[in-house]
Amino acid sequence: MSSPESPRIIGSLADLPDSARGAAHLVWWGNLGFMLIEGTGFVLAVGCYLFLSSASAAWPPAGDPLPSLWWSSIFTLALIASEIPNLWVKRRSGEHDAAAVRLGVLAMTAIGLILLFLRACEIAALQPSWHQDAYASVMWMLVILHSSHIVTDWGDTLVQALWLHTHQIGDDQFADVEDNCNYWTFVVVAWLPLYAVIYWLPRFA
């Protein structure tokens, strides 16, 4: 093993902070990377839907009902409304308000549970079954793909709530809460074009 020449020391980093938030934080960028991957997946899945619809004489195919608007619209409105507490939690975590963050993340866990119930109702109303034809298959795929994001984020929020209520919250954990809020916003925003494609496009196609 050899040693190279010593560099000349021109300063110290000891006075730098040991944490950051928002886009300055490393984990924020990791979160962005995974949102890019999943966002690409959503775009391509919508592309599959449009490809199959363009190859079909009728959309939905003859005999298939139009997708029901009732539960899907309730779910969509509730999902959009969840952004209000979500953004509030994000703001409070930016201000390092531990009590508000603990309460807010617990509330988001409960809201996630309500949304999962609404999504289950939406899925129960999905017609026809996925194995009926390609239209049904791709419609189910989009709903299941998005549902998997709600489930994973709900699990993440639940674990975060447990941890926040049992431990002292440091700067990195406030940043984690902020990142989780950003991810939820991604889940909400990703649904809106999916909702339009699944439930409204067949009505105008």
Binding site: C48, F51, L52, A55, S56, P61, W130, H131, Q132, D133, A134, Y135, A136, S137, V138, W140, M141
Partner: peptide, 14 residues
């Protein structure tokens, strides 16, 4: 596995 029709022309897939 679950009989979707993404790639089967008989079910409207491609």
């Amino acid at each position: 596995l679950v009989s979707t029709h993404f790639f089967s022309p008989s079910g409207g897939g491609d």
